[in-house]
Design a protein around this nucleic acid. Structure first.
Lengths: 173, 173
DNA sequence: TCGCGAATGTATACACTGCGCACATTAGGA
DNA sequence: TCCTAATGTGCGCAGTGTATACATTCGCGA
């Protein structure tokens, strides 16, 4: 738990746990919408521009690790949702709360491994294969369109609920 | 008029229509999946790295213009589709045929103007507002998930058809 | 025909970026 | 205690977006 609390004055040569500190810094940059660069991540972690390369093969590797964390969080939240409609709400809310992270997660071929667990959770709630794909595509489409500002709407949560009800409920009987 | 053989291979100083040549070059790069850079576009158009700035404010402007062209093409194809199911097929097919362009179109806030026309066509086929949003989100979600490789599938067109039928048909009665 | 201003391309330069390489510093086991 | 591997730093390279100054050419009025 307790982070490595080193006084900034005499910072030691060795950063306590740079690996996770880099992840945290990268996440912050993403959330703040700042232009993302490995150097910026290193800067924020208070470390030289090349230090990250001791822990991650390259920029892609850092990003992929970050995407993995994202899927873990999303999976946790989805698992806690009581029913399909709630899951839809959780999914879209996650996307809107963490736009950068969400985009990263889905724009990365490498993230497919981390993604598997999330997909499993999603699949477990709908038995019919066609409906499973449909429900997921519907919710993912809503999330992406909202993120990209193609679906202007004051209350996204309500939009998701009514859309899911209107489209999915009839299909599932 | 005398053939002032300029440094670069006898081409005249003034490129005929650089504005559209740049768009074409940029499109090629996107389609080929090459790493996209303004300099690469200029190189492919056979022109100096800074020439594009005479025609486009900055890289964003070129990309936005490109996205606009993309929406025009998509709108044309959608307009020619006879019914909703066909439109869905066209939409996803376009995304899969032009992955780079499609991603560009939707990842760009500036492209909202060009996108308006496309949205209008999409909206004109479904009267109920909730279903309209739902249908569009469903199809867009399918396109994006297929593009990102989250939906492995040998025959995307069939997948789209069965999904649309399974989900949308019951909802529309 | 001349000539001049406006378009259009080029050259040069700067601040960034991702990343490779050599080196400095440190931790932890023998 | 000393040695070795792990970890961080410095420096350098190629490539990027973009600003500025310059060269070339076209179009148009005289």
């Amino acid at each position: 738990m307790c982070a490595v609390s080193t006084s900034s004055a005499g910072r030691p040569y060795h950063h306590g746990d740079l690996r996770v500190a880099l992840l945290a810094a990268a996440l912050e940059l993403l959330e703040e919408g700042e232009t993302f660069s490995l150097r910026a991540v290193a800067r924020r972690a208070g470390v030289s521009p090349n230090a990250p390369y001791r822990h991650y093969e390259d920029k892609e590797a850092l990003l992929s690790a970050l995407a993995g964390c994202g899927f873990d969080r999303l999976a946790d939240r989805l698992e806690a949702a009581p029913d399909l409609t709630a899951m839809a709400g959780v999914y879209v809310a996650f996307a809107l709360e963490h736009p950068g992270l969400f985009r990263l997660m889905y724009g990365r071929p490498t993230a497919n491994a981390a993604w598997a667990h999330t997909a499993e959770i999603l699949a477990s709630r709908v038995s019919d294969p066609a409906l499973r794909v449909g429900a997921w595509a519907l919710v993912h489409g809503l999330a992406v369109l909202l993120l990209d500002g193609k679906l202007k709407c004051a209350d996204p949560d309500a939009l998701v609920r009514t859309t899911v009800v209107a489209v999915l409920t009839p299909a599932m009987g």
